[in-house]
């Protein structure tokens, strides 16, 4: 299956403009990354609801919290390596402890930031966000799912984190309806449960993986996780492959390992994630995924380890 490439970031910015036309309570708090987050049109159309804080992540998170306290729905937009990385303590206290309607939007997550190098390849954001009480965590698969997630969380009235990526990526249109806490089984299979989130999971949509062995689950709702769908699959397959453009520590793999142990399941486990390293610049993200063990060769290898008889 080949899908056209589309920008997740652009989908985010366009969806906010659409929402803001009818929702006059919708605000954006920006940290000098308006154009990178595709918010130029929003700022132009709704100048009084576009609050520019400059390069000051801590204050921006606090301002967003205060605005939310007055009844606004606030999208706090930046790169993930700055927000939530720099302002985590403000997100913890001012947003989460106060349980306020602020959506932290962290773009440029993962190795997908490509040539920008380690400082801009946020690999710890899911870990930082999923540990916070009151915080929900979402990572869209593609541009069309981004639109659905943004429209959904704009009505949640609680803190949420939305993970976006820099480059264009396959727009699969697989998600027709998004519900918080629900995962979509993209492909049904019987031997291996594959869980992942974000564009890296679209590697598994390659025709060579289209067989009845792999049950592929899009975990775009990372917190709350869809325990029910995932456990049902694991009870069937007994094998789990997790792939994520994130550190091994603290990501989806950890969350699922915990789920499996808690249920006393016996599950064979392979986890493709960045192994306790920082990223670096590369030609493109495919090169980086291959270098850090997340590319097709590693997926094939992990499948073989889980299912030695597999010929995929």
């Amino acid at each position: 299956m080949t899908s056209p490439l589309k920008s997740i970031r652009a989908s985010f910015g366009q969806t906010l403009v659409t929402l803001a036309k009818t929702n006059t309570n919708l605000y954006v708090v920006s940290i000098d990354l308006k154009s990178s987050l595709f918010l130029t049109e929003f700022a132009k159309k709704f100048p009084h609801r576009f609050i520019e804080c400059g390069v000051a992540e801590n204050n921006a998170a606090g301002v967003a919290a205060g605005l939310a306290k007055t009844g606004k729905t606030v999208f706090l937009a930046s790169f993930a390596c700055f927000s939530p990385a720099i302002n985590w303590a403000v997100i913890n206290q001012s947003i989460c402890q106060n349980d306020l309607d602020v959506k932290i939007v962290g773009s440029h997550a993962g190795l997908m930031s490509g040539d920008l190098g380690a400082s801009h390849q946020m690999l710890e954001d899911i870990a930082l966000m999923r540990t916070l009480p009151n915080m929900e965590v979402f990572a869209p698969l593609d541009a069309s799912e981004t639109e659905l997630i943004v429209k959904t969380i704009a009505h949640s009235h609680h803190p949420a984190y939305l993970r976006l990526v820099r480059p264009e990526s396959p727009d699969t249109h697989l998600t027709k309806k998004f519900t918080i806490g629900k995962s979509l089984v993209i492909q049904s299979g019987t031997k291996i449960t594959v869980c992942g989130y974000g564009p890296i999971l679209t590697q598994l949509l390659d025709p060579k993986y289209q067989n009845d062995h792999l049950e592929i689950i899009n975990c775009s709702s990372l917190k709350p996780l869809d325990d029910k769908v995932i456990l049902k699959s694991l009870k069937k397959t007994g094998r789990l492959l997790v792939i994520e453009d994130h550190q091994q520590n603290g990501g989806l793999g950890d969350a699922l390992a915990h789920l499996v142990l808690k249920q006393n399941l016996r599950v064979k486990f392979q986890h493709l994630a960045v192994n306790n390293q920082f990223g670096q610049s590369g030609k493109d993200y495919h090169q980086l995924w291959n270098y850090y063990g997340l590319g097709p060769a590693f997926i094939n290898d992990a499948i073989k380890k889980l299912l030695p008889s597999s010929h995929s």
Binding site: G62, V63, G66, L67, K69, T70, G71, K72, V90, Q93
Partner: peptide
């Protein structure tokens, strides 16, 4: 953190 929060309140 409180002064930033107060800025948001005052603006909103």
């Amino acid at each position: 953190q409180g002064l930033s929060f107060s800025c948001g309140l005052a603006l909103g």
